[in-house]
């Protein structure tokens, strides 16, 4: 074959470019540790998502020191959970699947980009350096409401972030002289023990108790108030743990009324 000298030079140049591109990308993979979404995850049938241990309740979970897993379900036309709250400076592994059609999982302004394919689970690990809010959008056409499909990723500072959940309850009504029991439950979803203080108010009575909740467990606290001191009528109560607050009311009713309204409590 007769090939002109100049063209031979260019063929060599073209090969240098091609190899150069491949070398750069390989450097990105090996040198910088950028991984591709792979096939490591088990497949999952979309109609079994609700019964699945991980996707039945889409959530963020701590799985190790500085490591979190976020189970995300994409479906027409929402993401679950929404918002997705995660800590900064921690490794977050997103597990993304779809309940119905093919969706996208894309955080504009970042390199977080994946397809959510029914039956498949995309696994991608990222780390946000700074607290802040990022939009999360579906970037694959998924039906008529595709353009409304968005979520929010809230990156909190490491100190601020927790997986604490607070719930509290009292009876709706008590008779005068009975004790009002306020039950508060503090759940710690993180691995580290949670040392905190529970503050409660029932009417004008205040309570305080220090509490240590072990990692991945719950603790109950009960505060008791005397209804006679509070008097007949409605009383607001509040429980706070760190930034979480639960409120409600309890009513102290006179005996006659109580009898008339008997059975309300049961």
């Amino acid at each position: 074959m007769r090939i002109h000298q100049y063209e031979k030079i260019w063929i060599a140049g073209a090969m240098i470019l091609i190899v150069g591109f491949i070398v750069t990308i390989t450097y990105g993979s090996v040198g910088l540790g950028i991984t591709m979404i792979g096939d490591e995850e088990e497949t999952i049938a979309p109609d079994e998502l609700n019964d699945d241990e991980q996707f039945g309740e889409p959530r963020v979970e701590q799985v190790g020191e500085n490591e979190y897993a976020a189970y995300v379900v994409a479906q027409t036309f929402i993401f679950q959970p929404d918002p997705i709250e995660i800590p900064a400076n921690n490794e977050i592994t997103f597990y993304v699947t779809s309940r119905d059609v093919i969706h996208g999982f894309y955080v504009p302004g970042t390199n977080i980009n994946a397809m959510a394919i029914p039956g498949q689970v995309a696994e991608l690990t990222v780390e946000f350096d700074e607290p802040g809010e990022h939009g999360l959008i579906c970037h694959e056409y998924c039906g008529s409401g595709h353009h409304t499909m968005e979520g929010l990723i809230v990156v909190q500072s490491e100190d601020e972030f927790d997986l604490t959940e607070l719930s509290a309850e009292t009876p709706d009504t008590v008779a005068p002289g009975e004790q009002i029991q306020l039950n508060a439950t503090v759940e710690n979803g993180q691995l580290e023990p949670l040392e905190t203080t529970v503050n409660a108010e029932i009417g004008d009575q205040t309570f305080q108790q220090d509490l240590t909740v072990d990692g991945k467990s719950t603790q109950n606290v009960t505060f008791t108030a005397d209804s006679t001191q509070l008097g007949v009528g409605e009383h607001d109560w509040t429980v706070t743990v760190d930034d979480y607050e639960e409120t409600g009311t309890v009513e102290v009713v006179s005996n006659e009324t109580d009898e008339q309204a008997g059975g309300d409590e049961s």
Partner: peptide
């Protein structure tokens, strides 16, 4: 354009 998808430092842990 951070963050970028990175390999987990201890991939065997999970």
């Amino acid at each position: 354009n951070t963050p970028t998808v990175m390999g987990m430092i201890v991939p065997v842990m999970l």
